[in-house]
Amino acid sequence: MAADYYQVVTTTDSQDEADRLAAAIVEQRLGACVHVFPITSVYRWEGGVARDQEWRLAIKTPAGRLADLKGYIEADHSYDVPMVIATEIVDGSEGYLSWVADETR
């Protein structure tokens, strides 16, 4: 059974890009809300271990907008391989999820 709502996570290497992506996602109604916060990422890339300051975007969206949101992030992101991970929202307040649906129509 597919979920009705998702939280989608991606990261960027600058606050400016995070803010730009977040605003565009909400303006285009691909997500109702985007939380943006700084993180430190440690990861393997091109044969070595890297450690970088990044900004994480946590986007709330209904299932019907998920493919468009993923496509937008992949097309408009500065990374060669942007992280896009969608996690099912298995429960939430009815009022909030209704708002997510309304804001992404």
Rank of each mutant, 00 (worst) to 15 (best):
S14T: 05
V81W: 09
S41C: 09
A3T: 00
E88D: 10
K70D: 15
G31Y: 06
Y5P: 00
Q7T: 09
Q28C: 02
P38G: 08
T40W: 10
Q15W: 02
Y72C: 08
V34P: 03
Q7D: 08
L30P: 04
G95T: 13
C33M: 04
D4C: 12
L30S: 02
I85S: 08
E103F: 07
R20W: 11
S78P: 01
D80I: 10
A3S: 07
R51L: 10
A63E: 15
A23Q: 14
Y96D: 00
L30Q: 04
D4R: 15
T12H: 04
A24P: 03
V8E: 04
D4Q: 15
D102W: 12
D68I: 05
K60V: 11
Q28V: 03
M1A: 09
R29P: 04
A2G: 03
A86G: 00
A2R: 11
V100D: 04
G71S: 11
E94N: 02
V36W: 00
R65M: 13
Q28A: 03
S98A: 15
L57H: 01
A86R: 04
V84G: 06
Q7G: 06
Y43M: 11
T104Q: 04
R65Y: 12
I25L: 15
A101M: 11
E46V: 12
D16G: 08
I39A: 15
A32L: 05
I59W: 00
A23P: 06
M1Q: 06
E74A: 13
V42Y: 10
M83V: 14
S93I: 02
A24V: 00
I25C: 08
K70L: 10
G95L: 13
E46A: 14
T40D: 14
Y6Q: 02
Y43S: 10
Q15D: 08
E27I: 09
Y72T: 09
T87V: 10
E46F: 11
V42S: 11
T104A: 08
V84F: 05
A24I: 05
I89F: 04
D91W: 12
H35K: 09
A58E: 14
A101P: 07
G64I: 11
C33L: 01
S14W: 06
F37S: 14
L30E: 07
D91P: 08
